[in-house]
Write a protein that binds this DNA or RNA. Structure first.
Lengths: 204, 204
DNA sequence: CAAATATGTTACCGAACGGTACGTTGGCGG
DNA sequence: CCGCCAACGTACCGTTCGGTAACATATTTG
């Protein structure tokens, strides 16, 4: 009853081994959700692929919706961190920073098995704004938008929010058309389109 | 047994009244699929909303997948026809034709209940390229892409396929970000972004 | 070692899913 | 007026879904 354990030394981190069940489930869910869609993938398939059993899943996650939210949190943070890393690779040169992102995205989007942005896809699958998965997705997208605005400001745009938004349109367009058209799709023009648009916005 | 009925007079068209069950089902499915997603909507809900029963659905459609394909065929053709209508409204002036489309899209995408492009959403929900719904979606998108290329050519672009693809990126980006961000989202810059990009492509 | 903590095993639940066998109705032509 | 046939409804099917109860078994960790 009494939870008065003094916790003298800092508690060990909740995770110890690489093969923890919760982590295996996370990986399994990530792969399946991204590749095939969230609603299309059942709990049983996730635990089978992870090599664990259903109760193990529900000991770490309250529901499929919560597992989905967790998945989105992870891919979102991962994407934002990746963006920040590319920015850090070219300090003081926002255009080069953006170019790194564009190059990477264009390459990924032209692979035939490309499935777009997991966050955007989730928002499509869960239009209800009160759904936990949708909330996480919206949050990630807002933060990404803010980063683009900041980048546009550093490029010296007169209206950085507008240039940032225009770039975001191109990104989202690449996510969608990449997975629809596969290799040779419209995403092949991503870089040149972005360059032209940036030039246009900066020239104003 | 013997189907030797001479069929002297032309057989009456299969449809007679406007309130046919099949048509009610089509409308119901269209509304629900678009607003909430295809996988999220069950057969029962569709028939309830249509005011008919399940067997009525399966008399007109072989399966939910086929109903989905039919839905996509309809929204796709409708969209293409709408595009053609806007083109016809400004004969000989491709840029004005495009502007009509952009204006309409930007307005729709800024409504808070906007749900993007039904065709794109379906492709997200059904990544399997062999799925009947996905096949229809891909077909529609290809035809739309071709129209944009043609429009770009009429604008005098040196590389019309590239300008067409760049515009498609903006459209798809608007579909996605419109439904993610709602009003005040990145789609507010659609028109000016398109203008800048067209200028850039034509100036080359 | 002993006490927690984490996991596996098995069996189960109610609801919702897509889909169907079969009876009923209603309108039209002979 | 009657028989026919297409259109529709009632009631049901088997399956899968997300989720849980109860108990046995490791695996740490103090």
């Amino acid at each position: 009853m009494t939870k008065r354990k003094p916790v003298s030394r800092a508690r060990k981190l909740p995770e110890r081994l690489p093969k923890r069940a919760a982590e295996r489930i996370r990986e399994s869910a990530r792969d399946l959700f991204y590749a095939r869609g969230i609603r299309a993938v059942g709990i049983d398939e996730i635990v089978n692929r992870a090599g664990v059993t259903k109760p193990s899943l529900y000991r770490s996650f309250a529901s499929k919706d919560e597992l989905t939210a967790d998945y989105l949190r992870h891919v979102g943070e991962e994407g934002l961190a990746r963006f920040d890393a590319l920015v850090a690779a070219d300090p003081g040169d926002p255009r080069a920073q953006l170019r790194r992102w564009l190059t990477e995205l264009q390459q990924k989007a032209n692979r035939s098995d490309y499935r777009g942005c997991g966050t955007t896809n989730a928002a499509v699958e869960y239009p209800d704004r009160k759904h936990p998965a949708r909330k996480v997705a919206s949050d990630i997208k807002k933060r990404f938008r803010a980063r683009l605005t900041a980048l546009a400001a550093q490029m010296g745009a007169a209206k950085p929010e507008r240039l940032g938004d225009a770039l975001l349109l191109l990104f989202e367009g690449t996510y969608a058309s990449g997975q629809i058209f596969g290799a040779g799709g419209p995403s092949r023009v991503l870089i040149e389109a972005a360059d032209l648009m940036i030039d246009g916005y900066l020239k104003r």
